[in-house]
Design a protein around this nucleic acid. Structure first.
Lengths: 215, 215
DNA sequence: ACGATATTGACACTCAGTGCCGTTTGTCAA
DNA sequence: TTGACAAACGGCACTGAGTGTCAATATCGT
């Protein structure tokens, strides 16, 4: 008990991401990135549920116990530098011109957040595929997305001059996330489709406030 | 692996909800409803995480193994007759007049879904409070809400004459859920506030396509 | 009373996650 | 070079969720 709902940024921030601040002490034998790489590969190859932490640790040449020093849970192994991405997300809104309408800003921010080069996009797709293929990961993603929503909520609250706990910013956070998730699902369901246009469309339903013309 | 994403309606539907179809065989020693009642009480009193299944089983006078015959997981113990509620949800949309605009229908359907008498409303609030206070339950709720979204997606797809896998219905499902979740959170965060007006407001952002006037 | 039937609960097992603690491996200062 | 120090490592033991198996138990119909 006593765990805050959205305060899990410490979960990934802590632990030996690279090494300790000074170069003192025994150096880490691996890195978060390397473990993530190995985990991702194994999850893709044989599935998330059937891949045990013990297997991953063995493949990485470390002890099971050590794995949990790099990641708070097996679920975390797939989220990479999500917190860093969130910082980028926050900064975008910080630098967003005040004259841009709030809904337009949210739409642009979300699109920007998901704009990567081809290789990073491929990696994102692999990640999302694994997440959506595993109920456990899908469930866990909700907690991660809570922090994502918080970025939007903070922006909207500031723009509207209301507390972050007000209904409107809270709702905008959920709506933006919903639109993004719909785009993700669609992206994964169809081959050779670009994510960005899908995001534009799903967010447009929100920002334009209308449903595109029928078939 | 090989588990469908949204196909978990069997999870609660199976198991001895009351007793077997015929009255033959050893009768169940308890019921899903009774176990849910006990679980809810204990979760409220001491918290979800610290309450073990063993404790619940002991309090109910059954074996730990038996608990898992009534509920697929500890998480499930709190969701009551959610599947039945979903049937009600589906039926509402089935009987929704075709001339009602799709967004208005979604708004009305979601409001209707959450309209209970005072006692059921209190129960719902207790449930939601527990869910939002536990990261594990909050995460798990995503899977349950997947079935909820599917109802909206099916309705929207039928109305729009597009497959259920199309982007627009999918997005509407996520957006409606997002609005509902925002209303729930707000409802729990403030005392003596009615859920329905909050739902109206959050859904209005979606259906009216505009943000209410500032402070 | 007997057989068919369905629930129960005990046992054993896997796996995620955690606390504890001694060991290893590096850096820095004397 | 040596020794103190700091940090990561990994083994061990433990809790708790979830599952497979199987004998015991309780009810109904004949």
């Amino acid at each position: 008990m006593n765990r805050a709902i959205a305060t899990d940024s410490e979960s990934t921030a802590l632990g030996p991401a690279g090494l300790g601040p000074t170069g003192i002490g025994r150096p880490p034998v691996t890195s978060r990135a390397e473990l993530e790489q190995i985990s991702l590969t194994m999850f893709s190859a044989q599935g998330f549920e059937v891949t045990s932490v013990e297997e991953i640790a063995a493949a990485a040449g470390i002890g099971r116990r050590t794995f949990f020093r790099y990641f708070k849970s097996k679920n975390d192994a797939i989220w990479g530098d999500f917190d860093t991405q969130l910082d980028r997300f926050t900064q975008w809104f910080d630098q967003c011109p005040p004259e841009m309408p709030i809904l337009a800003a949210i739409q642009a921010g979300v699109v920007e957040f998901n704009s990567f080069d081809a290789s990073a996009t491929r990696l994102l797709k692999d990640r999302m595929r694994i997440i959506l293929s595993s109920p456990a990961l899908q469930a866990y993603s909700t907690l991660r997305y809570g922090a994502w929503r918080a970025v939007i909520v903070a922006f909207a609250a500031a723009r509207l001059g209301v507390p972050k706990t007000a209904l409107v910013p809270r709702t905008l956070g959920h709506l933006a996330l919903g639109a993004a998730l719909a785009a993700y699902e669609q992206w994964l369901a169809t081959d050779d489709t670009d994510l960005i246009p899908l995001l534009q469309q799903s967010l447009s339903i929100l920002t334009a406030g209308s449903i595109p013309a029928g078939p």
